[in-house]
Design a protein around this nucleic acid. Structure first.
Lengths: 333, 333
DNA sequence: TTGAAAGCGCTAACAA
DNA sequence: TTGTTAGCGCTTTCAA
C-alpha cells in the first residue's frame, strides 16, 4: 500500500497549529515559541513531510531551476561549460534543466520557450542568426547568452575568439609557417571571429589564408576533410581548426595518409579539451576556458535573477596552450 | 512595461467562455462547437497564451521531466548516456533535469530526494553501497538504476561487465600475454565484476593477475599510477584499465617514460569513448554501449511511468573493439 | 456542448 | 506569536 505523501495540512493538523505556522516554520521565515517549534519539528520528522516544490513554485514564481541549452553535450567543450555552470548552480541551490538541441535549429525555439516557463532563468547557446532571436528577449525570463551579440539587448558571456585566433596565428607565423590553412565551421557565429583574427594576423605578415569548411564541428568531419587538404598540389604547412575535435580528426587522418605531425604540418585547434593531451603529438590549442565560461555565465545569470541585471558582455580571456603538434619550420629554400 | 503573462482566465474572459472550456480545448480533451473553438483559438493566438506548466503539474502530478543523476558529466561515458537518454526523452516530450553528483556521495541523497519531487521519474548512477540505498525504493517515483543490483527491488539497466572483461582478457591471452595487470577503481561497484571476469579468464589459463587501484576513474589517475607500474622490476606485458580515461592517461605517461605501446605493453580500457580512436596507437576497448544504455534506461523508465514497471535487469551486450594498442607477443623464451 | 465550483499544496497579507 | 483567509493557474467532477 502506497502511503500518500503528507501535505502541510497533515502536519498542521497533527501538530495542532495552522498551515501558515507550519509554512513559516519550514521556510524559516519566522520564529515561534519553543513548544510549537518542537512539536512541528517532531511531527514533520515523524510524517516524513517535505514541502511540495511544485506548489511552492507556483506561488512564489521561483523554481530553483536553471535552464541550460547546449548544442551538443558530447562535445567536451560544452561538457566543461555544463560542469562549471552546474557547480555554481548547486552552490546556490539550483538544479539544471538540460536541453541538448543536438544542432537541431528547428526544435530550438519551441524547446526553449517551453523551458522558459519551468525555470528561473536560462543559459543558452544557439546558432540562430541574431535577427531571428528576438523572441529570446521577449520571454519574460532572465537569460544569459553564450557568445557575442551585437543587435540584441541580452547579457552575454564569451571568449575573445578573435584574439585567441590572432594569438595562435602569430605563434605559427613566428615558427616560420607560410602556408597556413583554416578548417572552419561557417555555420557557427564564432567562426567569423576566429577567421577574422587569423586573417588580421596573416595580413600583417603579407600571408594568405586557405579556408576549408566543415558541415559539423566534429572529429569525423575533420577526418573527412583531411585527404582533400593534404593531398592537393601543395599542402599547407600549418592548419588551424575551428575546434579540437576537428583537429583531432584531421591529425589522425593526415597521419594515416602518411604525413607526420608536426614535421609535415603543424596542427592547432580551439577549446583545449582534455583530450588534447593524449594524442600523439599532443595538440596545441587555444584554451577558451570552457569551464570558466560556464561559471561566469551562471554567476551572471544568478545575479540577474537576484535583480542586478546588466546587459553587457563578459569576456573570458583565452590562453594559448602550446604542445608538440606545432613546431618551427626550417628556413625554406 | 512588462506585459503580464496571460492566464487561462484571461483567455476565457476574452473568448466569452468558461475556463473549463478553454482548459479542455487546450488539452484536446474534448471537442466544441466550431464557433467556440474558433474564437478560443483566435484569442489564444492574439494573447499569446501558453498554459503554465507548473500549475498544470501541480494538479496532474506530471511534470514531463525526468531526473538524471550521473557521477561526472565530463566523463564521455556518462556524456554518451545522457545523449542517448535525452534523445528518447525528447521524442516523448520529456526534458532532463540533470544532476552531476561529482563523485560526491555526501550530497547525493539530499540531491536525489529533492529531485524526486520535481520529476516524473529518475535515472540514477550511484556508487553507494546497495544496503544504503533503500531510500531510493521508498521515494514514490519510478526509478531506473544503472548497474546491477542484487538486494534492492529496482529495475536496472547495465552491461555485462564480467563478460566484457572476460572477452578482453581472452583476447590478450590469445595474443600471448602472460603478465597481465589490472588498473582498477575499487570504489565502483562495477570494478568487482570486471576484475572477476578477468580473474576467471586468467585462472582458466593458469595466469596471475596484478592489481593496481585508482582513487578516481580519471586520466590523471592513470598517468599517476603509470610510473609505479612500469618502472618496477618486471612490468606487465599487458594492462587492462577500469576505463578508457585511465587507459589514456596510463598510455601517455608510459610513452613519456620511454615505453612503446603496444610493443612493450599492450593497453586496453572500457567504454570505447570516441577518443580511443585518436590516440597513438588507437586504444583497444570494451565497448559498453554507453549511448544505447542511455536509450535503454530512458525507454524502461518511460514504460514504468506509463504503468508497466518490471523490476528486472536489462542487459546491454558489450562488444570488443580491437585497435592497435594491443598486439601479439613474440613467443617468449 | 458548455459551465459552476471545488480544489491541488502552498504562501502571504492581514488580523488577532 | 499565531491564525484566518484569499488566492497562485490550472484541472476535473458534476450538473445544466
Amino acid at each position: 500500500m502506497k502511503k500518500s505523501i503528507p501535505t502541510i495540512r497533515d502536519v498542521a493538523a497533527a501538530a495542532g497549529v495552522s498551515t501558515a505556522t507550519v509554512s513559516k516554520y519550514v521556510n524559516g521565515a519566522q520564529r515561534f515559541s519553543p513548544a510549537v517549534e518542537a512539536t512541528i519539528k517532531q511531527v514533520i520528522e515523524q510524517l516524513g513531510y517535505r514541502s511540495n516544490p511544485l506548489a511552492q513554485s507556483m506561488i512564489t514564481g521561483r523554481t530553483k531551476t536553471i535552464g541550460l541549452s547546449v548544442l551538443d553535450i558530447s562535445n567536451p567543450h560544452f561538457t566543461s561549460i555544463v560542469k562549471g555552470a552546474n557547480r555554481v548552480a548547486l552552490e546556490h541551490g539550483y538544479t539544471l534543466l538540460l536541453v541538448d538541441t543536438d544542432e537541431n535549429a528547428a526544435r530550438e525555439r519551441a524547446l526553449l520557450e517551453a523551458l522558459s516557463r519551468r525555470v528561473d532563468g536560462m543559459l543558452v547557446f544557439s546558432r540562430m542568426p541574431e535577427q531571428e532571436m528576438e523572441w529570446m528577449v521577449d520571454m519574460q525570463k532572465p537569460l544569459v547568452f553564450f557568445g557575442r551579440l551585437t543587435l540584441l539587448q541580452l547579457p552575454c558571456v564569451g571568449s575573445d575568439d578573435r584574439r585567441g585566433a590572432y594569438m595562435i596565428t602569430q605563434h605559427l607565423v613566428a615558427l616560420g609557417h607560410e602556408r597556413i590553412a583554416y578548417m572552419g565551421f561557417s555555420r557557427s557565429r564564432r567562426d567569423e571571429e576566429r577567421m577574422g583574427g587569423i586573417r588580421e594576423c596573416l595580413a600583417s605578415h603579407q600571408l594568405e589564408l586557405t579556408v576549408y569548411d566543415c558541415n559539423a564541428p566534429t572529429a569525423a568531419e575533420g577526418e573527412r576533410l583531411s585527404s582533400a587538404i593534404m593531398l592537393g598540389a601543395r599542402h599547407p604547412d600549418a592548419i588551424i581548426c575551428y575546434n579540437d575535435l576537428m583537429a583531432l580528426g584531421f591529425m589522425k587522418e593526415a597521419q594515416t595518409l602518411g604525413f607526420r605531425v608536426p614535421d609535415d604540418i603543424s596542427v592547432a585547434g580551439f577549446d583545449n579539451i582534455q583530450f588534447c593531451r593524449y594524442t600523439s603529438p599532443p595538440l596545441t590549442s587555444v584554451d577558451l576556458q570552457s569551464e570558466r565560461m560556464g561559471v561566469a555565465g551562471m554567476t551572471k545569470l544568478l545575479a540577474a535573477i537576484d535583480g542586478d541585471s546588466k546587459v553587457d558582455f563578459t569576456m573570458v580571456e583565452p590562453q594559448l596552450v602550446l604542445r608538440s603538434s606545432t613546431m618551427r619550420r626550417k628556413a625554406s629554400v
